[in-house]
Design a protein around this nucleic acid. Structure first.
Lengths: 236, 236
DNA sequence: GGGTCTTGAATACGTCGTACTTCATGGGTT
DNA sequence: AACCCATGAAGTACGACGTATTCAAGACCC
């Protein structure tokens, strides 16, 4: 029985969950060379395991492996910042607020357009799901139920992005989820959500249901603008 | 020995460049199981090499490796569609026009916002680069110089995305480049670029230089709208 | 008899250790 | 300065064993 607590995945996954965050956090500055033998000893695993982990890191453009040199850490500008794992690691790391801001800007660009498309393509089932979660947000918007509120909030945006019918938008729901949970856990947990935001969500659901694309887009733009304003208040 | 011609990278990279496109093209439908030993024999490489390639494929969520069952191809909805390599493979595959459309929609959401931000954050050097490429587009917009035009077009959008100051936007320049090159190579190569689009680029460069964010955003929105309309005309 | 549970063998991935190959790099030679 | 060679670390290969997961045969209960 392993008391590692790091889950029961393979060894390479454990190495990855250790090296990835370390690199994205800046523990190994760009240009640092990591030798596979050295890593194998440090993690008490075979070189094979290290190599597989390094391959994944390499596919994220976090490192570059070159003969006779070693595994060198690449500069942050080259990282695959859209990889969900990289996003997670950076969000857990040092400059999470900077990362949160970048992602919120991305949201503010994408979500309004996605909502507009959703108004044109959403199925009745998706519309029902949308109003359901909007009502769930209303029901949990008062009285320290932030966790329950968050669930509905995330689900709402996930449905919107999915209903847009664009796969690139749909795959961003994980990013939005990360931003929303990060936002919630970063706030002091004693303030209820902004009532105006709750109302906006209800109205977005309605606009999408009635096929009013322009209205859905404009309302979502208000939501994301609110999210950005919120960041400006709580930003370090 | 090897007359593969597939470049001088490592063996795992060669396996990847063969398996990746095959999967994204749908040659191995979701649910297909690939055994490592079988792959090792098919590619005449050791299981180690196959395992490293599979790790990368797994990190792209193209496949899932489970004990006692094998490497199973995952459904397309779970693929990491933001991975540049996945984008490239899909763009080279069967439904490239569908992919092109998805990416163009993404562009139309992101680029206008990025241009607006660029108007606020662009450095003088970036402004110079911008006007330089805009003029380059003008110079190459007539007389079958599509390749030269494309270089300036790609560079223009790369600078805009970079100048936005948002790393998530900046990293999308590869995607835009893929879309633009795909668009050009997909068209009949005998039609010069739309003069209106060229003018718009010049005006965007000017708007960013003068710090007129709203104008830069609106003009870029016109550019992306034009790109979408262009797709509707040439779509199969 | 039909259905559920237990048990055990088969199997394909996971990990390991070792030996060998391949070249970028750096230094020494001409 | 041009060239060549020794070096070192990643790349590849192979064989062995570990381990979880599946599937089916058989025991057991209803």
């Amino acid at each position: 029985m392993e008391a590692t607590g790091s889950g029961e995945k393979g060894l390479h996954a454990r190495v990855l969950e250790s090296l990835g965050p370390a690199i994205t956090a800046g523990d190994h500055p760009p240009g640092t060379v990591l030798r596979t033998d050295e890593l194998a000893e440090r993690f008490n695993v075979s070189r094979t395991v290290i190599r597989e982990a390094v391959r994944v890191l390499e596919s994220m453009h976090l490192v570059a492996s070159r003969r006779r040199v070693g595994v060198t850490v690449r500069p942050a500008e080259e990282w695959n910042v859209y990889d969900p794992r990289v996003i997670g690691w950076r969000l857990a790391g040092r400059d999470r607020s900077r990362q949160l801001r970048s992602l919120t800007v991305l949201r503010s660009a994408v979500e309004p357009v996605a909502a507009g498309l959703a108004a044109r393509h959403a199925t009745p089932a998706q519309c029902a799901e949308l109003t359901e979660h909007a009502m769930g947000m209303v029901a949990t918007s008062r009285g320290q139920q932030l966790d329950a509120y968050l669930v509905h909030d995330v689900a709402f945006h996930r449905v919107v992005l999915t209903a847009s019918g664009n796969e690139m938008f749909a795959r961003l729901w994980e990013v939005v989820a990360a931003v929303l949970t990060g936002r919630t856990h970063h706030h002091v947990m004693f303030t209820d959500p902004d009532p105006a935001a709750v109302t906006l969500h209800v109205q977005v659901a309605e606009a999408i249901r009635t096929g009013d694309a322009a209205r859905a887009e404009a309302l979502t733009r208000e939501i994301t603008a609110g999210a950005m304003a919120e960041l400006d208040v709580l930003a370090p």
